[in-house]
């Protein structure tokens, strides 16, 4: 049975499924209880699962992640919500010095199946610290996985995959896509959700978390994007298609690790790559992808990898965020530019 729902609702229902599946899954964060989170992603969960499993925490991000680590030691699978991207930094210490290294430190003996949900990205007319894309900071940190869904269906599956993962995951949710609607198969079984069904009703596992997805097939230019910019990439592919160009769009889905092989296979065919993300291009995910693809596909490349993304400025005031964010025109310009080489 499919239902047309928004991404915020899809993640909500994915969380619900995960909580039903595994009694050790719990939710913690600021305002996740009666309010249901500031984006209503945890709506009704406290009502249905109780305030022991859905915890309104004190207002302290470092505390949220630090205690989640302790809960993981005690065998729980905390799903933490950081209210906005720009508020993750009080927890940066716990995430990078503790969570990312804890398994390594334990010699692999302790699992830290912690998901940190972070509404991220701009385009919603918000104030400072509410529109940022800090994913590269975490992708740069070994021990963490970094993922970002682009559509309601994928969000529904990916949040469940993330929770099933025995590794800590930064789960970046594109705020600007929260209210995009799509038909989502809510009855999908574990296998269809990308989970590995376990015998005897045990909690399922997960594999292939890093797989990118080719959304449109094309021969001339590859556009790689993730999270909020996938929609922009698809628009660019459509417009370019109307102009007679053949564009292949890849939704990376995972930022760490990067599915280099899928992108390289595509670039070997097209010879051209444009990477699109909202985060600043300077030292961003696109830079890593460009380097990796160049190493793999150098002699197939007809143009340098071009990046479209944010500038090396703090996220600007909302009135001019439209000019900051990678727009359809900027993506098309990059496509044109690669073709002009």
């Amino acid at each position: 049975m499919t239902e047309r729902i928004a991404m915020a609702k899809a993640i909500n229902l994915g969380l619900r499924r995960a909580m039903e599946r595994d009694s050790k899954v719990m939710i913690m964060g600021e305002d996740v209880g009666p309010l249901g989170g500031v984006f209503r992603v945890t709506d009704s969960l406290q009502k249905d699962f109780g305030d022991s499993r859905v915890v309104d925490t004190p207002l302290a991000e470092s505390g949220i992640i630090g205690t989640a680590i302790g809960l993981a030691y005690a065998g729980y699978r905390p799903v933490c919500e950081i209210q906005f991207d720009g508020f993750i930094f009080p927890a940066f210490d716990q995430i990078t010095t503790q969570l990312a290294k804890a398994r390594y430190r334990s010699g692999g003996r302790v699992k830290f199946p912690i998901v940190i949900r972070v509404p991220y990205g701009g385009g919603i007319g918000a104030v400072e610290h509410h529109s940022e894309s800090p994913e590269a900071l975490f992708a740069h940190t070994a021990g963490l996985r970094v993922m970002s869904p682009a559509t309601p269906s994928d969000a529904f599956a990916m949040i469940q995959q993330a929770i099933a993962s025995p590794d800590p995951i930064l789960f970046f949710e594109p705020k600007a896509r929260y209210w995009d609607k799509e038909d989502v198969d809510l009855q999908a079984d574990d296998a269809a959700l990308g989970l590995i069904p376990a015998p005897d009703g045990a909690v399922p596992g997960v594999a292939g978390l890093e797989r990118a997805r080719v959304l449109t097939s094309g021969t001339e230019v590859t556009i790689a994007a993730y999270g909020p910019t996938v929609k922009t990439a698809l628009s660019a592919a459509r417009v370019a298609g109307e102009e007679g160009r053949s564009i292949e769009v890849i939704d990376l889905r995972s930022i760490s690790p990067l599915d280099i092989d899928t992108v390289a296979t595509s670039v070997t065919k097209t010879g051209r790559l444009v990477v699109v993300h909202e985060a600043p291009t300077f030292f961003g995910a696109g830079a890593e992808l460009a380097a990796a693809v160049t190493e793999k596909c150098f002699y197939s490349m007809q143009a340098p990898v071009l990046r479209v993304g944010g500038f090396h400025t703090p996220y600007p005031p909302a009135n001019i965020e439209e000019e900051y964010l990678p727009s359809l025109d900027r993506v098309l310009d990059a496509v044109d530019a690669t073709l002009a080489y």
């Binding site: 444009v274 291009t281 071009l306 990046r307 479209v308 993304g309 944010g310 500038f311 090396h312 990678p326 900027r330 310009d333 990059a334 496509v335 044109d336 530019a337 690669t338 002009a340 080489y341």
Partner: peptide, 16 residues
Amino acid sequence: TTATAAPEQPPAPGPE
């Protein structure tokens, strides 16, 4: 002035 101009002109993709 556009990026679609003849390749003699510098293309102007992204913040590059």
